[in-house]
Nucleic acid binder design. Structure first.
Length: 639
RNA sequence: GCAGCCGUAGCUCAAUUGGAUAGAGCGUUGGCCUCCGAAGCCAAAGGUUAUGGGUUCGACCCCCGUCGGCUGCACCA
């Protein structure tokens, strides 16, 4: 039980012993004090209750404190509680109690006080979801890293977690992919780097076919195409191995004089892409074979990235997996009256689900079959929901998907409820990664730095620093450390901020190694490992037999911080906020660094003083390792 | 037009969901390596939390208005 929980239980008993009955459903909460001047923990119950009863909060607080002191369980934990301000009740922990808590954490190396619920729910977490044939760029990091972190935390606190990467391996873009494949494929490029080549032909076809039927003149097309090509090329600038002169040549060629004939050709290419798509959807063997090859290549490339990031999926059902389930699903929706014909256009009627009784969705029906009979992603997602609930046995579904799609998920929720399903579907939205122009990055146009380039650059910067600090290190260890630091920095940059915040992508932001960054946390860990190495002690061995005692303020602060780990971890899932854990670990590392400066460990007096400091180091080390592990970040032995 | 998200130090972000004097990093200024790793520590400066009202013991947080930014709204996923 955490310290906060222990105090809470005592407080709850005290409140129940008061003459007046408690409010319906009121549970007392005890939280860490905002400021150490006010002690270690605080309770605001007196003010909350006094407000409801219209009585004096300080007088009520005095009553509560009297009841608290009558409880023998409080005496070993805290000094007599104090009343302050408007009616705060402050607890100051006894040093002996904190020392006992520290010993308990030392004896619990795997979980460090974090409990597990008795009856775990099965939750399916949907995250990452890259589109095959589109490059994974820095914008995909958010879903991938946040989703992976939530999966780790959920598993740690006892959920039965199933991770599912809902790959975008079907849909309109394959018309362009197949057209590009048939017309522009460079076999040498395919052999050298299949994924790059696949992306190249897709983007080329996409920019050539990117036209608007209402386009009147060749000049309009020229402008449009120039903008598309510019965007595409911009994303390559500054990336390793890119020749600026070659880029300029490409730009000039692509935006050269555009004639009326070109305009006609663009329309033809767009039509040709649509034709390739239709052939794929009707099962044309050649196109299906190309599609399959693209999917295989792409998945192999993605697996490399996921391996590098240390991310694992239990399933990777792509959208194509659900193709055969869509037609029967839609028939069912139509028969049960969930879906109705929508507005007619060009003589064709789509099938939609209306939500007349929902004020938010009344104006926003969801389309589940297009006028031409094809299905769209709302349909696929319903089929996916059914599979997860009926076959995987999910009790909860978490979707880590960008905030712009919140309407889609509200519609999904409304649809499955109407179908009679009870399992909730939770959208966990996050903010957008913006380009320099403050607009969202777009994969279709190819804007935005590639994820692989980002990781390469991260490792490169880490390597430069490791070379400087640890030149003599063996090459294989150096390679491993630069990976751990580089990937860690990128992940931490994402996880340490509130997930709804939009931000402009910047190399320096993602790759800073100072201040509130992963390397700062890793450095605290490395320093502790170094202490044990210096002292020729086994950092994983159980502590000595000397009793522990916290005498220095820095020791006390660190012990207090360590005890908060178990209070922090569960809060991550309350509102899906990895940054709460990241912030905690940052504070822990800072508290440790202060302790490290103030309190020599190996040179401390033998017996209780040295044993206490070694224990603080050992528990900090494990808390950093386990905590960073929950963020999906590894720790190096040296750096 | 309807709906959603957002506006906090020069810059980038926090703030335990209504609690005490709004905190960090970067940058700026000044200290700290004969001492377990300086990717570090200690300290200073920096704020009318976009803005105007309201609710109450108490508001960055809740309610209403205004200004500004982003996003979504039927045949892309």
């Amino acid at each position: 039980m955490t310290i906060a929980q222990q105090l809470q239980a005592i407080l709850q008993r005290a409140l129940q012993s008061l003459p007046e009955p408690l409010l319906e459903g009121f549970t007392a909460t005890v939280s860490p004090a905002a400021d150490s001047r006010f002690g270690d923990y605080q309770a605001n119950a007196a003010m909350t209750l006094a407000k409801a009863r219209r009585t004096n909060p300080r007088a009520l607080a005095a009553q509560i404190v009297a009841a608290l002191q009558a409880d023998a369980a409080l005496e070993p934990i805290s000094q007599p509680p104090e009343i302050a301000g408007a009616g705060f009740i402050n607890f100051r922990l006894k040093p002996e109690f904190l020392a006992r808590e520290l010993a308990a954490l030392d004896a619990d190396p795997e979980r460090l006080g974090v409990g597990q619920p008795a009856h775990p729910h099965r939750v399916v977490i949907d995250f990452s979801g890259p589109n095959i044939a589109k490059p994974m760029h820095v914008g995909h990091l958010r879903s991938t890293i946040i989703g992976d972190c939530l999966a780790r935390v959920a598993r740690f606190v006892g959920y039965s977690v199933v991770t599912d990467n809902h790959l975008g391996d079907w849909g309109t873009q394959f018309g362009k992919v197949i057209y590009g494949w048939k017309n522009f494929l460079n076999s040498a490029g395919l052999a050298a780097d299949p994924l790059e080549e696949l992306v190249r032909v897709y983007q080329l076809a996409s920019s050539l076919a990117d036209t608007n039927p209402s386009l009147e003149t060749a000049q309009q097309l020229a402008d449009l195409r120039a903008a598309a090509v510019d965007d595409m090329l911009k994303s390559f600038h500054g990336q390793p191995g890119v020749d600026a002169a070659a880029l300029e040549k490409m730009r000039v060629e692509a935006t050269a004089v555009i004639t009326e004939a070109d305009r006609k050709q663009t329309l033809e290419i767009a039509n040709a892409c649509r034709a390739e798509l239709a052939k794929l959807q009707s099962g044309d063997p050649e196109n299906v074979a190309i599609w399959q090859q693209c999917v295989d290549l792409s998945r192999a490339g993605l697996d490399k990235i996921y391996h590098r990031l240390g991310i694992h999926f239990d399933y990777q059902y792509g959208e194509s997996f659900f193709n055969s389930k869509l037609a029967p699903l839609v028939v069912r929706l139509e028969k049960t009256g969930v879906a109705q014909p929508g507005e007619e256009r060009d003589g064709k009627r789509p099938l939609v689900v209306q939500f007349p009784d929902d004020p938010k969705l009344a104006e926003s029906p969801a389309m589940i079959r297009k006028g031409d009979g094809a299905f769209n992603y709302a349909t696929t997602d319903i089929a996916t929901y059914e599979q997860r609930v009926n076959e995987i046995g999910a009790d909860a579904l978490w979707y880590v998907v960008g905030a712009p799609q919140s309407l889609h998920f509200e519609q999904q929720n409304a649809i499955v409820r109407r179908m009679g399903y009870l399992v909730p579907l939770t959208h966990i939205p996050f903010g957008s990664v913006l380009g320099e122009d403050r607009k969202m990055l777009s994969t279709r146009k190819g804007t935005g730095a590639s994820l692989r380039g980002l990781l390469d650059e991260a490792e490169e910067r880490a390597r430069a620093i490791v070379e400087e600090k640890n030149a003599g290190m063996p090459a294989d260890e150096k390679a491993e450390i630069t990976r751990v630091i580089g990937v860690g920095a990128v992940k931490y940059a994402e996880l340490s901020q509130h997930r709804l915040t939009d931000y402009v992508f910047s190399w320096d932001r993602m790759l800073s190694f100072q201040g509130n960054t992963a390397p700062y946390l890793q450095n605290a860990y490395v320093r502790i490992r170094s202490i044990f190495r210096r002292g020729e002690l086994d950092p994983e061995a159980p502590g000595g037999t000397a009793p522990l005692a916290l005498s220095e303020p820095a020791e006390r602060e660190l012990a207090r911080k360590l005890a908060q780990f178990a209070e922090t971890v569960p809060t991550v899932l309350e509102d899906f906020r990895p940054n709460l854990l990241a912030n905690y670990l940052y504070e822990l590392a800072g508290t440790f660094h202060s302790f490290f400066e103030a309190c020599p460990v190996l040179k401390a007096e033998e017996g209780t003083p040295r044993e206490t400091r070694l224990t603080l180091c050992r528990v900090t080390m494990r808390t950093l390792r386990v905590g960073l592990g929950l963020l999906g970040i590894e720790v190096p032995e040296r750096m």
